[in-house]
Amino acid sequence: MSGAGHKPDPGNATGGQWPAGTEAAFSMRGTLLRKNLMTALLLAPATLWLVVFLVLPFVAIAIFSVGERAPEGGYQAAFTLAQYANLPARATAFWNTMVLAPVGAFACLLVAYPVAYYLALRAPERWRLILLALVVIPFWTSLLMRTYAWMYVLGGRGIPALLAYVGIEDVRLINTPGAVLLGIVYGYLPLMILPIYVSLERLDRRLLEASADLGATPLSTFLGVTLRLSLPGVMTGFSLVMILLLGEYLIPTLLGGGKVFFIGNALVDLFLQSRNWPFGSAIAITLVLVSVVVLIAANRISARLSGARRVDLI
């Protein structure tokens, strides 16, 4: 990033009155600066983007969060912690999110782990890539459309209609916390499977054999070797799913039918409907802080168990 504005004029070096070697030194310096300039140019668009659309917006909501609401909505400059003191006004949204996000992530984990285990250690070689692709595809298809599919299945003409057909009347599935939980597991399952799969796939199989040879039962091999060594993947998946769930809006809105409010719902309300931006900003900052705590905790746990691993999203 440095050196863009300090390009020397190598022409200065010619003229004979300079000590020997100066010319060479200057031309080397010129090459070095040209290299730096090139690096700066390569990084410039990304830097601009990150600063203008990530860092500055974050600074903006941080400033808003200590401001006041203008009478007509929007923002009035101030320095007050009143917005943060007001957080309990949205206690229901916080409560729902803080309960359903970890519960949802854990439910996701329970379903995801056996699938990842099968894909990594048990699936026939020629099936593995196909099955893996079948996991990745839903991750990259519209969450809106996939959640819509469940509105369809759980709605009055889906499973309840089928149940009524066999004589079980008046079953209510949609617009319940259970429906939201189901939507969460459905929506985020691929994101949970992938990192666990990656950590299981890198597992040294000889450890499993060694464990069996040393007389460990399959269960204690699983608990002592497999599960333990795949924990970094588990932590990555759990924290990613948990963080994305903290900001979830579509699933509670479409499957909770306005009865299950998440922080995401509170934010949409505060920014787009009641236009209380400072209070909304305070909620958003709190959300980010909770996310950071989740990430740090997950990283600590992974690092303690073994080296942290990167996730490939594809």
Binding site: I243, G247, A284, L287
Partner: peptide
């Protein structure tokens, strides 16, 4: 989360 990117 997208909701934070959106509002900020």
């Amino acid at each position: 989360p997208g909701v934070v990117i959106g509002i900020s």
